[in-house]
């Protein structure tokens, strides 16, 4: 299919075109980059991007489904990107998030609701990195015109944390009995929360998790610390206690209300523009370094092994080697007519 057909399809709200466009991004096809170049001006300013993160098994997919249902009852359309890890050995993956999406056998179906689009993707085998892929998928979904876009990802490791930084509002989900404080802190996901959720609050220990979070939030270092938008003083990070299972639901309305309040806050204070500018900046930074790195190594006149030999034989130092590689690349390449898609 041609890029123009897909663009027209997306503008006409054709699901097949939307699905195919996302596949181009997922499969790192050249058409994906061309598509983004053509549709970026049509992103909806008012799209609200919500990140949901936390360790495996805390109930992120279950909660996402309840959040989707709530938004649908409010007449909002929802696009979802659910990211699951893949096996480091085979590259294969079981993308299990969709399993939790409410279906007809349990009540009303989010699977067939025309206001819901759900996409499962795996986190591996992407040279350009997870956050670039996620950012591009969100761009496409925003052009399609969803009111809310939800990204679900397992909050383990830096690349996963980076993914959540593309969100306007990030929700960090915890549950009772999950490791000690050090483990939370180490994962680096506490710092990015705009909202904390203690899910499975039907289980013992939920109150303890909440107390721990409250103590941490009262700790001034945290609140004055490196908040990505410098908002810690104005936005009081809420802690919402939830139960995601149908037979025992709790806290979903409150959670959705907090998520929307956070967006209203971003909009009314003008901080949304800052958040998005920051995101754009980090996107550009990653792209520039990805392209430069790839330019250097795809250039056949640069023989990395040769340089490595010289450095290890103490013929030259590593700084000189790096300078030589970049110099050689810059002088020998047609930097004027750079075609990015050859290097990504």
């Amino acid at each position: 299919m041609m890029v123009q057909d897909i663009i027209d399809g997306i503008k006409n709200k054709d699901i097949k075109s939307l699905a195919r466009a996302i596949s181009w991004i997922e499969k790192e096809r050249e058409e994906g980059i061309e598509l983004i170049r053509n549709i970026y001006p049509y992103q909806k300013e008012e799209t609200h991007i919500i990140g949901i993160t936390g360790f495996a098994g805390v109930g992120k997919s279950t909660l996402s489904s309840r959040i989707i249902e709530k938004y649908r009852s409010m007449g909002k359309t929802v696009g979802v990107v659910a990211i699951d890890p893949s096996s480091p050995f085979t590259g294969g993956a079981l993308l299990g998030d969709r399993l939790r999406l409410g279906s007809l056998s349990l009540g009303s179906s989010m699977w067939t609701d025309p206001g819901v689009f759900y996409r499962s993707v795996s986190n591996r085998g992407r040279m350009g990195g997870l956050s670039r892929m996620t950012g591009d998928i969100i761009t496409i979904m925003s052009v399609f015109g969803f009111d809310k876009i939800i990204i679900e990802t397992v909050g383990a490791g830096q690349s996963e944390v980076d993914v959540i930084k593309v969100a306007d509002t990030s929700v960090v989900v915890l549950m009772p009995g999950m490791g000690d404080r050090v483990q939370f802190a180490k994962a680096g996901i506490l710092e990015i929360a705009d909202i904390f959720v203690v899910n499975k609050s039907d289980l013992v220990g939920a109150e303890r998790v909440r107390q721990f979070l409250e103590e941490m939030l009262n700790f001034t270092d945290y609140r004055k610390g490196e908040r990505r938008d410098g908002t810690s003083e104005e936005w009081k990070i809420p802690i919402v206690m939830t139960i995601g299972e149908y037979n025992n639901l709790k806290g979903i309305d409150e959670l959705v209300q907090k998520i929307d309040e956070h967006f209203d806050y971003l909009v009314s204070t003008g901080r949304l523009k800052e958040v998005r500018k920051k995101r754009a900046k980090s996107e550009i930074e990653t792209l520039v370094s990805d392209i430069v790195v790839s330019l250097c190594y795809k250039n056949h006149s640069v023989d990395l092994d040769e340089f490595a030999k010289k450095v290890s034989n103490k013929k030259i130092d590593q700084y000189t080697a790096a300078e030589k590689i970049i110099e050689k690349t810059m002088t020998e390449n047609d930097i004027v007519n750079l075609n990015t898609s050859h290097y990504l």
């Binding site: 096996s87 590259g91 294969g92 079981l94 993308l95 969709r98 399993l99 279906s103």
Partner: peptide, 11 residues
């Protein structure tokens, strides 16, 4: 999955 595909199960 173990053969390397990306698999989604509907339930």
């Amino acid at each position: 999955r173990d053969s390397g595909y990306e698999v989604i199960y509907t339930g």
